[in-house]
Write a protein that binds this DNA or RNA. Structure first.
Lengths: 111, 111
DNA sequence: TCCTTATATAAGTGATTCTTTATATACATC
DNA sequence: GATGTATATAAAGAATCACTTATATAAGGA
């Protein structure tokens, strides 16, 4: 499973999207996130693990707490993929050329 | 499961992303898509069903064939969600930059 | 040391996903 | 009507997922 696979899969869950939106306002611990959904603490920790496996968030260590924050470049790859497909769909070749020129290599969605 | 859930989940599979990229070049039947991945015809039909349930593609009927094409507005909602999160993130980092610039001393950059 | 807080991990369960082969349905052509 | 082609659906199995409760680990404070 590629990182791109994991990222899209991670975003397919509304609880995980809510976590990301909450982290958009700044770092948060598991306790801080308890009220984003009516689930158990282990379930929440599991969602965080999924998000971290997708390289969408990162973890620091402060005493017993593990504040999570968003990775700034996390969405770039997905945005690039969506933009490329949308550009193809819209037949906007100028934008496609610009996008491809910005890319280091031709992205291959297969792994 | 919301449409947004289904869309992100649909994109988490590389075979389905390959199908979408192929459909970016125009409508295609199941037979046209056979070489997208080494899977059986029912498996391919299943992927198409997932993509259609996510409102990413639509189906027409031409004799026995069922040409699929991309739905032009399919990616808008996902783009909007990603753009919003990215905006939140960027705003957060701008605020962080401002905060660091205001500080008299270099804070501990430990992460 | 003992207790509390914060988080992770284990174990188990039910639901969902992805795949296959086999079969059914719809249409075209002969 | 019989046959071939295109696609869908059914059935079944393996793998993964999302959740639970119970427990383990790690650190802080009395």
């Amino acid at each position: 499973m590629s990182v791109l696979d994991r990222r899209f899969a991670a975003l397919s869950d509304p609880t995980r999207r809510a976590i990301l939106e909450r982290l958009g306002q700044g770092a948060a611990t598991v306790q801080d996130l308890r009220d984003i959904a009516p689930i158990s603490q282990p379930a929440l920790s599991h969602h965080l693990k999924v998000l971290e496996a997708a390289d969408l968030i990162e973890t620091s260590i402060v005493a017993q707490t593990r504040p999570r924050r968003l990775r700034p470049d996390a969405l770039d790859e997905m945005n690039a993929w969506l933009a490329r497909l949308q550009t193809i769909m819209e037949g906007n070749y100028q934008r496609l050329d610009a996008l491809l020129a910005d890319m280091p290599d031709t992205p291959d969605p297969k792994e």
